[in-house]
Design a protein around this nucleic acid. Sequence first.
DNA 1: ACCTGAACACCGTTCAAGT
DNA 2: ACCTGAACACCGTTCAAGT
Lengths: 242, 242
Amino acid sequence: MAKSPATGPRGRDKGQRAAPELSKAQIVETGLRLIDEEGLQGFSVRSVAKALGCYPTAIYWYTPSRHFLIAEIVTIILRDVVPTAELEWQDWLRALLTRYRAAIARHPNAAPLIGVNLVSNASVDVDLLEGLLTKLHQAGFRDDALIDAYNAVVGAMVGFTTQEFAMEPPDADDLQGYLKGFPAGIDAARHPMLARMAGPMMGRSFILRWQNGATRPMDGAFALYVDAFVAGLEALLSRADR
Amino acid sequence: MAKSPATGPRGRDKGQRAAPELSKAQIVETGLRLIDEEGLQGFSVRSVAKALGCYPTAIYWYTPSRHFLIAEIVTIILRDVVPTAELEWQDWLRALLTRYRAAIARHPNAAPLIGVNLVSNASVDVDLLEGLLTKLHQAGFRDDALIDAYNAVVGAMVGFTTQEFAMEPPDADDLQGYLKGFPAGIDAARHPMLARMAGPMMGRSFILRWQNGATRPMDGAFALYVDAFVAGLEALLSRADR
DNA sequence: ACCTGAACACCGTTCAAGT
DNA sequence: ACCTGAACACCGTTCAAGT
């Protein structure tokens, strides 16, 4: 008489159907787990199906395409980036960029999915939009300038971190070997500044690194970046006041 | 007796070999052309081979992997982004970011290749490194702060533009349809700011767009972004002075 | 409603063989 | 030295069929 616990929400006393073996949530979670554990190249519709013990085509009953599956995964990753509303706009912006970076740092292999695809750019989080627009309005931006400021902030938020967590090449050792020999080949007469800095920069700077932010975080650069951007917005606003 | 014009540099008077049919430059140019004309998904080792009328495996005589081929393509795209040295550091930085964006705008489909891959991040352009370090040194950054500033600038340079030219989904029409209905669904009581701004923002803002910068450039946002970033660096430097 | 199963048109890359 | 040719282990997605 009593429904078996395995029976799904559509289970009836008579004419019962078996509960679905799969669910959308399970598929999305499995996808994210594969990205975390195996890297981006370990994630595919087929590998998700394999991990769930079903045919690849079964996935398509729950999601219309690879793109949409990725969008769902991104939504989970960016679930809690919106700061509390009581912060001053400068602190709120700093918190937003920092929380976004922290979210990516928890799932570094997923970073390329967000910066690069229009859709998963941030699967329309209304609270993020409302919060950001409100704070920028409080700061003093209006009309077209408000839209520009919104775009500048989103660009700043996603841009740096996407870079920091860029994909390492499959043959990272070769790259390391090449870069380690790089400083010795610099012509100090033609490139004096580079000759002096290449050593200390090696391994912890854009262009001159072979690992990404997952193993070599760029905390100092990020802090400077955020401080500069927010201070710059303040400067522009105070200029416009006059 | 005379060498035929088709004979390559290794051609000898005796024991001649036929000139190679392919060349690295030709392969790289073909790859870039395919990206420009067909989009990123029209570019593959196999499609390059097809366009050149050879077997896919012939490509591997000239380049060790897909990754390296992409790095070569990126090098061509970013050939001329370094501004002239006589500019003041603020103008030099603005010119750098603007020239980078212009270079991507000429090959918008290639944008995701740069922001996302560690290697092709900018295939070690020594003049870019030297120029940037010199200007930041002139600005007043030293030691670790110089490295941080370098990374902040590269992050700012690549980050915004990568976003602006993010990949449109294959089913952009669906996205457009979804987003056009989005403003009507906003609860104005809970999200008043968004309710007011969603209309004017639609189609020309991150998250709320279905086309990228190739068709809908974000000039105003980019200008604000660059001005804020440079003004922010100035502000940080003058604070540190005291 | 939910999943199996076969099939299509692709990938990047390796390895042996030709000339 | 330079390229052909076959092969391997993958992709995302469609479509028909089962239960």
